[in-house]
């Protein structure tokens, strides 16, 4: 079985600032990997690179055996197979919920309106959002908006999901509903790469946790290894601060 995703020596700078300094990471099919690390350590940048929203300076990204960082690659085709969900939802404010969800399937996949609507309605039902179908995003709570954003990504039937701190912008009481959705996806076998500050969630859902520090993966292991007995002093420090902040 080939790997779902393989990153080899990814480097990325913004001007003089070197954000990613050689990232190597492989995800097996159906694997859930959580990226943890301090603010500014490059988690979002890494996810945006995988989705080809940011060009990388060096290295290779291989998705299901195909190098997607090559020159002749059709980025639009690659992106159709990768779902990404952002911290700030980024729903389209001028479209109803159902239009947000069907835009990609209709315009990028060429589905008919009826087929795209059916797909959207099925997903909305599955995630308890059917009654929001025709509302506009500004009428929804943050948790509902983020669930719609997840559904929008799922409607493309991606083989890989990238989640970038999808609960960071939410009020505490809304976090659970979004995490439940992600747990369900993990249970369903979705391959996921998740940047998160929710350590208890990472411990719960991840098969493997990677600690990102100063642009490299400093330490990786099972949640039990990383949270139970981290080897690197930097990892220990980071987790200590999290515990002090009451988030673990």
């Amino acid at each position: 079985m080939s790997d779902a995703l393989s990153l080899e020596g990814i480097r990325k700078s913004f001007g003089k600032l070197e954000v990613l300094r050689g990232i190597d990471l492989t995800l097996a099919e159906h694997e859930v990997v959580c990226l943890i690390g301090a603010s500014g350590s490059g988690k979002s940048t890494l996810l945006r690179c995988v989705n080809l929203l940011e060009p990388i300076d060096a290295g290779r990204i291989i998705l299901h055996g195909e190098e997607i960082t090559g020159r002749a690659v059709d980025v639009n085709r690659v992106r159709r197979g990768i779902g990404i969900v952002f911290q700030s939802f980024n729903l389209f404010p001028h479209m109803s919920v159902v239009r947000n969800i069907t835009l990609g399937p209709r315009k990028a996949l060429g589905l008919s309106k009826a087929d795209a609507d059916a797909r959207a309605d099925e997903l909305l039902g599955r995630f308890g959002l059917s009654d929001k179908r025709d509302d506009f995003p500004d009428r929804l709570s943050g948790g509902q908006q983020q669930r719609v954003a997840i559904v929008r990504a799922l409607a493309m039937q991606p083989e890989l999901m990238l989640l970038d701190e999808v609960t960071s912008a939410l009020d505490p009481e809304l976090v659970a509903e979004v995490l439940d959705v992600i747990r369900e996806l993990a249970g369903g076998g979705m391959t996921m790469l998740i940047a998160t500050h929710e350590m208890s969630f990472a411990r719960d859902v991840a098969h493997r946790v990677c600690f990102l520090d100063a642009g490299v993966i400093l330490e990786e292991g099972t949640p039990a290894e990383i949270f139970g007995s981290p080897r690197q002093p930097r990892t220990q420090q980071f987790l200590q601060r999290i515990v002090q902040a009451g988030r673990l």
Partner: peptide, 28 residues
């Protein structure tokens, strides 16, 4: 720019992103 990023991440082309996401909001 995050609106364009969201559209492009769905696999829409630059033109489609402009047409369906950016320009409708800009015109309003």
């Amino acid at each position: 720019p995050s609106q364009n990023a969201a559209a492009r991440s769905l696999g829409l082309s630059h033109g489609q992103s402009l047409r369906y996401v950016v320009i409708p909001q800009a015109v309003r």
